[in-house]
Amino acid sequence: MKFSLGPSLFFWPKQQVESFYQQASESAADIIYLGETVCSKRRELRAKDWLELAKQVAASGKQTVISTMALLEAPAEIQVMRKLCDNGELLIEANDLSAVQIMHDLKLPFVAGPAINCYNVSTIKVLLKQGMTRWVMPVELSGDWLKTLLAQAQEENIRDKFECEVFSWGYMPLAYSARCFTARSEDRPKDDCQLCCIKYPQGRKMNSREGEKVFVLNGIQTMSGYQYNLVNEVAQMKDIGVDIARISADSNQAFEQLNQFKQQLTQPQKYSLDGVNECNGYWHKIAGMSVA
């Protein structure tokens, strides 16, 4: 089983991004995803900067994957994505069917990211035909759901045609909107957002009026208020055939988590989850924000 570092979902200054990926190159991650997946107005790094950075990371020997946007509305956004897709050497994570279409046209393999709605083996088959080589399960699905699906893939003799990756740690991306909720939180429309996301390197907490951490506002993306944590489920994931566990690049904490997760393979131990900051409900078929 391998461990990946997911793309950073927040908006950080260029220097912070660069030093983060410097650390990532030396981290326990086997696979590193990077790129802007949330908002095309975030241009601290442009397409060519991301490609350059990715190539530097790839030189460290880790598999490096360019992640692409989930919600694309303007032709200019598609153009930028096409440039990333056609980079000539690095694997692409598609987070919208537009990227799948482009990769199919280019006759190149791709990873189907967590924002693509792939819920069953028939959809896996459709995506395999397009060139998918790895599938990241949508975050809302459970261990049982996955187990059934992978068993079916086995029966249909397609299990060896793709790797399976599970989002296992960090704030989960839960929704995408036309509206920018961070700009709204500063009482501004998106067209006048002043790139305010950069002021919130961990997003903005949106709590209930009783102080419960409900969601995290991250531009047009809404994230879980708690960090997902499947550290106690690593063995189970391995058993049902998960190939890769993804640690989201929330902060430098991710590197420590990578170590903890990796250690579960050799020296398993049970961690107790902090019920006011962490959750694992989705995997256990209950409300995502709960702890089983």
Partner: peptide
């Protein structure tokens, strides 16, 4: 592409 409801209720 909205899982807010399952996050809160399953």
């Amino acid at each position: 592409r909205c899982y807010l409801s399952s996050y809160m209720t399953g």
